[in-house]
Design a protein around this nucleic acid. Sequence first.
DNA 1: GTCTATAAGATGATAGAC
DNA 2: GTCTATCATCTTATAGAC
Lengths: 193, 193
Amino acid sequence: MAGTATTQERILDLAQQFIQERGYNGFSFRDLANGVGVKSSSIHYYHASKTHLALAVTSRYRKNFAAATAQLRKEIPAAPDLLKAYAQIFKSTFEDGKKVCLCAMLASDRDSIEEAVTDQVRAFFADQYGWLSSVVTDGISQGTVRDNVRPDDFAVLFFSALEGAMMVANANDRSADIDLVADQMIGLVLQTA
Amino acid sequence: MAGTATTQERILDLAQQFIQERGYNGFSFRDLANGVGVKSSSIHYYHASKTHLALAVTSRYRKNFAAATAQLRKEIPAAPDLLKAYAQIFKSTFEDGKKVCLCAMLASDRDSIEEAVTDQVRAFFADQYGWLSSVVTDGISQGTVRDNVRPDDFAVLFFSALEGAMMVANANDRSADIDLVADQMIGLVLQTA
DNA sequence: GTCTATAAGATGATAGAC
DNA sequence: GTCTATCATCTTATAGAC
């Protein structure tokens, strides 16, 4: 399962999974150590504190997400198809073990987390707004998106709705809600609607 | 501030606030006891366990929300105005101390919470879907909402987007995002758009 | 109805051996 | 790089006094 992965990678993988499933306050160094198969002191060897661990996980998540969205940009030309593919990233994350967005979890736990982590969460949100906004702007130029749609505002709407959809999908065990939400929003801005 | 409130009420008030701000795992009976001004054993007198406490808070929240939305129905006739007023409930909750929806927090912490609490969360979501769906159905009859909008689907979209908007608004300290999201969605289904 | 006292276990973290 | 051993503190929860 994690045959070639280093201990360091397996720690980050499981920490990310725990935050996505239980939140920052929902797991301990011991849980992590047990899952990885080492002692909790070994976790401290790699990450001085829980805050440092959260920062490492968040920074990696942000980087991976940026790579994935950049790749979509290279492969898919039409804006509506890009939005659909973007929503599929969220849906896949959810179906891969009923996990919601890492940064949504950390944003929820904000009041019990150090500010440096929230800074990373905000940076992730800004990344997403930038990508979505540029996709919509291109869509208007292409003629695939209605020209009365405001890219920055729609980016906030699309992203918020997707994050909210993951939250309710998780509570209701209904991943189809993610498609339901994404498809409605894409339909509403389509030039041909 | 809480001059006439009973200890029981003050416990529920603060417990709700803590869950909304920090999540279910982000506060302890001690925090609660210190805030209310009693000992943690007194919290146990009213609520046998943390699960029971969460159930009491959630059940009261659901009841209060039902009363508030029923009242809106009596006072406001037009569907778009009702949707706007509904969104204002969320915005007010947020501005009253940067709090997000209680049930959104509990839904996020689902994997570390007993199923009975999640049942209440799901019931709350179902309440909201029912109310929103009926408002949109009436809006179509009134002619204030476009007749190609599907009430059940739009209820999921509107609610998900509002919940997601609160989450990002909280991370970014930007309550205006809640209006931004609500106004765009209402605009998109308006008959006169 | 609220308290003191206490239990048994979990928590993040550290020092030092191998 | 990973371990054992230990820490002070916090956790939910209970028994019984006032």
